[in-house]
Design a binder for these strands. Sequence first.
DNA 1: GTAATTCCTAAACCTAACTTTAGCTCAAGA
DNA 2: TCTTGAGCTAAAGTTAGGTTTAGGAATTAC
Lengths: 151, 151
Amino acid sequence: MPASEGLSIGALARRTGLAVSAIRYYETQGLISPWRNPGGQRRYQRADIRRLSFVMIAQQFGLTLPEIREVLAGLPDNRTPTPADWKKISQGLRAHLDQRIDALLRLRDNLDGCIGCGCLSLPKCALYNPDDRAKTYGSGPRYLMGDAPED
Amino acid sequence: MPASEGLSIGALARRTGLAVSAIRYYETQGLISPWRNPGGQRRYQRADIRRLSFVMIAQQFGLTLPEIREVLAGLPDNRTPTPADWKKISQGLRAHLDQRIDALLRLRDNLDGCIGCGCLSLPKCALYNPDDRAKTYGSGPRYLMGDAPED
DNA sequence: GTAATTCCTAAACCTAACTTTAGCTCAAGA
DNA sequence: TCTTGAGCTAAAGTTAGGTTTAGGAATTAC
């Protein structure tokens, strides 16, 4: 195993815990760019372990792969990213995460109101954050009730 | 429009903001059970407006349709649910939501640690809640780094 | 030198949550 | 009545994020 030649995809998979197929898929999505050895096999830098770890963390935060690609674009591509580089783009994640938490807290407060009155009658209730899930899934307007609690 | 005959699927769609196709789909998933008029068309109770609203709220909270079906099973099926009935099952949502918020807060704290040291080196970092997304998406082990920050 | 791994690509398949399409029937209004 | 809008079913399509399969080629291990 010639160390100076970079990591094989299998080695990278073992280091990150990702499936080989997932790593190839991420490549098609522009998240990682290996070079090829003379035999046509993918070779990765050791820094790519960190890169894929970042991808996994960002996914946990609810970012889509295109969004993660955007964030990763903030890294320098002419050199191996430094700790400072990673710190910079991680702070972008932090903002994203704060938004998600706020949205959920708002949702919880609304539910509290509904439980409080026991009627679940809205429009005081949730669905008043069209930002979070509404855009990701489904397609219609999806507003709530619009109906007096007489039924 | 004979009021005593219940709501048509189009009327229900207008009242809830859902697409007609989505309402039919929810029926296949056991979330709602209309009866049929003599011509074979679906007819809904007015209480179904509330039922679908609940479905939409629960989705915002991150519940899957099978999970929502479980929660709805807590409603009486021999009579129209009362405010007290809705309150009871809404409290189940509250617990679910609290869990999700906690998971995100833990994740945020972990990220803080990573940003603090600037290395994103882990395993101090995230991915230490295998409960949230890990089970839902992907299939491999997906642990992080396992690598000293030397690269 | 050969057998066993590992890797390659392309294409098909998977789940969730729906939407779209095709072809046909029902219901409502002038 | 007859036309138009609403509903019906079944099947196929869609998106995200991958996995699986098939049929070869490259590497590694002995």
